[in-house]
Write a protein that binds this DNA or RNA. Sequence first.
DNA 1: CGCTTAAGAAACGCAACGTATCTAAGGAGC
DNA 2: GCTCCTTAGATACGTTGCGTTTCTTAAGCG
Lengths: 197, 197
Amino acid sequence: MTETRTRRRGTELEQAILDAAWAELSEVGYTALTIEAVAKRAGTSKPVIYRRWPSRAALVIAAWAGRQPISTAIPDLGSLRADLLWLFTRVAMRTDTMMSQTIAGVMSEAFKHPEVQSLLRERLDSAPLTKSLWRIIDNATARGELEQIHLPPRVQRLPLDLIRAESILCGSPLPEETIIALVDDVFIPLLKGLALD
Amino acid sequence: MTETRTRRRGTELEQAILDAAWAELSEVGYTALTIEAVAKRAGTSKPVIYRRWPSRAALVIAAWAGRQPISTAIPDLGSLRADLLWLFTRVAMRTDTMMSQTIAGVMSEAFKHPEVQSLLRERLDSAPLTKSLWRIIDNATARGELEQIHLPPRVQRLPLDLIRAESILCGSPLPEETIIALVDDVFIPLLKGLALD
DNA sequence: CGCTTAAGAAACGCAACGTATCTAAGGAGC
DNA sequence: GCTCCTTAGATACGTTGCGTTTCTTAAGCG
């Protein structure tokens, strides 16, 4: 047992901590994640972490960043409904239990550490999804299923907002009926309504 | 200082604890609420509380129950849009910072104490709101603003879901523009879309 | 009046918090 | 290569709140 472990610095150390935080998050979830456990797993100590991030929430958000590769690839399944179901399902799968727990936990902590609120909002940004949504709607328009419509920002965010709310409140994974209801009872009627103007 | 304080039991004691919990919640918020503080405020002790509720979340939900008197009174402001804005605004006002914090906190804790999840869902039930919504839509239909439509459950819940998600994520009170966007960009188009069938 | 139940007080061990202190390692400059 | 300065990493600290245990004695019921 040689204690000759080289002492890390800067980016290397930071990345090791973020990796450890992510691993802890995946294994025990946000609620049970402790700074001490992250430090131990990263082979470092609490002060090193506290020097970099002011709170558990901030650390977790930092670890979260860049962990969810976003594919913008969108299929054309032949109908607006099928494409939307595909999109909603994909979003729902990404918002798994661990993520729901993290979001709820960070939201809750944001009242104590206001600085994380904007970080969280950034992390929940709907922009990547928006592109997919446009694509799906363009395809539907090309097919003649929809009139040309303009999507207000609020509507662009809606799929993410709906699924997130449902996942956090009711637990993941969402049953298929829920996703179907969101598409058939809410989103498609909304699109048809927007197409009227 | 006679120590002759009568020792309470049953319902009287229980109510005193719930009152204390509600007072603590209002004063320090969910995040900072501790069982010990509630016990102290209620003039009792921790075990007495733990004998009744298994967790902070369960206690808070119990204290919350019945605290929000629901008025079903609905104005007729002469237009669907005005009525909806009134409704959304009222809902948003009820979902103040303290409530958002509580909801987020309980959601977060629900991953540790699954039994509170159903309690929370119950507490967030949209039924009271639904009645108001029907009334508003009936009025709009009578005015000729809308076709007769059937509202799927998912749509009935939507106003509450949208406002809650926004309040928790972005903080209360919601700016007026947000409420206007929810009504003009989402809910009214959705109703028009539903009216097509 | 005597018995049962449970309120309330006190203390427990535990876990994690966030901080302070110290040492020695690693780069930077001369 | 030697010195200096930063800071990693170890350790220990006091604090807080948890959830539980133990004990007493008041309250209510017969």
